[in-house]
Design a protein around this nucleic acid. Structure first.
Lengths: 207, 207
DNA sequence: CAGAAGACTACATGAAATGCAAACTTGCAA
DNA sequence: TTGCAAGTTTGCATTTCATGTAGTCTTCTG
């Protein structure tokens, strides 16, 4: 845990941060399409070629953090608590994301900026959706593995797809209407509750 | 209705078809990344520049038909039948897609090929997801407009996102496991029923 | 059949992305 | 400290996607 990362690792982290910071700043200032990768690299004081050794594409520079967060969700799903139903487990996993987003107030502005860009730039939206979708596939498999008696793979997929799909669309629609972060979160929570209530209703039929 | 399209329109249609056919054939033969736009254009006997006046990008050449189909779904949602609940309307809209896919047996092979490409090529998957997502946004708004008393906009978004998300993930996961088309469809139908059952359960609470 | 509108082509350009080999930096051990 | 191995950065060349432009050819309309 308390490992000192060493100079090499620290420098890499610094460069990565410099690149994401430069990219975000430039995207906000001049727009995504109007900003070239070589400008980002120049601003972060590295060569254009180096940019591509940190990020596979221009889009990835904004999606890197989201990728890490989604990895955490995946781990949550994999660690089912004893006695926890599939719906409870999903609720906890989704809740974990909400907490991360709400808690880190110091980077709330950054999240809002990234979301705004994702919403308005089609190529970013496409890449974000791809990331989310591929994560969902893994989530469905993890959920099925965690609750093999309760759900088969297709049911797990339907459950994950239903919950994530509801939250995603409700959140984006609210964002699109220019709602403040608090209201967007409220919409997400409400959508999650709806989807989970539906899930609970059909998995434990009334006696 | 019975309009004769005129030579100009017929030629355009012919060129568009030639391009999509050439693209699909080349993609299957040599792979998506290995096929260049200029090869597609050459095969269809037009200039590279002309390709881009028919399709905005290399990806669009495969997604053009899907775009048209999704437009039809949207129209279905907009035309609510009197007395139809939101869940019924959604069920009908989703069912319409299933019917289109199942019915058109003559192009079943084409659909399967396109699906296979979308599944295996990330950039195609990303564009397909973008198309589906943007359609969902419109569906949510149409659903809210169709049933303003039953659902507010966020609820409509959650409903649409939940149902489409469930179907999408269940279908893709089944496809991914190499299941035959009939089984994929079965998974989609099951996921749709699950999501819709959940929706009905929470919108009409037991007395 | 003549003119207008639309489509196609060739050419030029710019940015994204990748491969490669040379130069440089860091980590580690003698 | 020095030397070397491993890992990073860089410049350069190259390919492909995508767009603007100007001119030519085709189709439509009166």
């Amino acid at each position: 845990m308390g490992e000192v990362p060493g100079l090499r690792e620290r420098k890499k982290l610094r460069t990565r941060r410099a690149l994401t910071a430069a990219a975000l700043r430039l995207f906000m200032e001049k727009g995504y399409e109007q900003t070239t990768v070589s400008e980002i690299a120049m601003t972060a004081d590295v060569s254009t070629r180096t940019f591509f050794s940190y990020f596979a594409s221009k889009e990835e520079v904004l999606l890197f953090n989201s990728r890490e967060n989604l990895g955490r969700v995946l781990r949550t799903v994999a660690e089912r608590r004893s006695g926890e139903s599939a719906a409870d487990l999903l609720a906890r996993a989704v809740g974990a994301v909400f907490d991360v987003v709400s808690a880190d107030a110091e980077i709330e502005w950054e999240i809002a900026s990234v979301n705004h860009l994702i919403m308005t730039v089609p190529s970013l939206r496409a890449h974000a959706l791809l990331l989310l979708f591929d994560t969902q596939r893994e989530m469905a498999e993890a959920l099925h593995r965690a609750c093999p008696d309760e759900l088969d793979l297709v049911e797990a997929a339907a459950a994950v797809g239903g919950v994530v799909g509801a939250v995603k669309l409700a959140g984006f629609i609210r964002l699109n209407r220019g709602a403040p972060p608090a209201e967007v979160m409220a919409a997400c929570r409400r959508a999650a509750e709806m989807a989970l209530a539906g899930l609970r209703a059909i998995s434990t039929p009334p006696a």
